[in-house]
Design a protein around this nucleic acid. Structure first.
Lengths: 156, 156
DNA sequence: TAAAAATAATTGTTATACGAACTAAAAGCA
DNA sequence: TGCTTTTAGTTCGTATAACAATTATTTTTA
């Protein structure tokens, strides 16, 4: 039974590694940005930031559109928008054409928060990817996307 | 502003992509195994499975040792062990040498569950990694580990 | 046009994640 | 030995995540 990665933590068989490595790295990445946001006293979580950024690129999306853009589900978006509205960064505006929908709009405070947080995120991003070449990053993304497609839920 | 990945979902700027891609793929991977376990009626979650597998490789670990091996924190392990014990797959055995500790031991039922679930996981794993070459997987793991090290929490 | 189906959002339950505070026990040290 | 610090585990509060069920509204269709 060949064991690898003994130095990093649990001993795991080779065939188990890729999924484990992926999970572990994604978790640490999320934690890294989370702690960066907390340490800077931004008062928002990384998931809230992701939603703010989506709205910054396209303001007034419906909750379902935000869900699709972030790969989160509808209840999760409901709760994140609840928090963002409570903090005054977004507003729910009833869609005049479809009263089931809200348009989620950034407030002035939301835009200000984005301006405050963006440089913090950019700095953290540089630190995270330091030492990795563009080609290496492109290759990583190719492989991850291939995996992503392999794992697509069955249609129907 | 170059936008990429339009076809997969939200439009995102290039510099944001790697972290987004990593997060998205890891999430879908977890969901894929989660649904595989649910569809097969195993009655356990993927996180519970990870703990069972660690114990299968080294029975009798303390909760903190399990936490380190799985990169989960102590409260999370407490709750997962609670659930595994309630389901009869593990037992808490007080450590005779250190009464603060438990040795977590697989029961016969736990071993039986592992024997039942392992082929299901292996099949799913093959499907997930189908079409990816060994070299590609090794390269993926190298890059992910490089990232993982970049993101190591500051010592102290 | 009325009934049925689909859509948007919410609420509830359970599980995971993380920090903080807490208890109990062990180890280190004056 | 007695006091302090450290360690192992639990509990609590809040946030995220998935799934199911529910409500309100719109669209389909018979």
């Amino acid at each position: 039974m060949p064991k690898v990665e003994e130095s990093r933590g649990a001993s795991v068989e080779r065939k188990d590694m890729p999924g484990f490595t992926l999970e572990r790295t994604a978790k640490r990445m999320k934690q890294f940005f989370q702690q960066t946001l907390a340490a800077a006293g931004t008062g928002i979580t990384i998931d809230q930031w992701v939603v703010l950024q989506v709205l910054n690129q396209q303001n007034g999306l419906s909750q379902l559109e935000i869900a699709r853009a972030t790969y989160k589900d509808a209840p999760t978006i409901t709760r994140i928008i609840d928090l963002l509205c409570k903090k005054g960064f977004t507003e729910r505006v009833t869609d005049a054409n479809d009263r089931r929908k809200f348009r989620i709009e950034l407030t002035a405070g939301g835009r200000q928060k984005i301006d405050e947080v963006l440089p913090i995120i950019q700095h953290a991003r540089r630190k995270a990817w330091d030492g990795l070449g563009n080609q290496q990053i492109d290759q990583l993304m190719d492989t991850l996307n291939q995996l992503f497609d392999n794992l697509a839920p069955e249609e129907g």
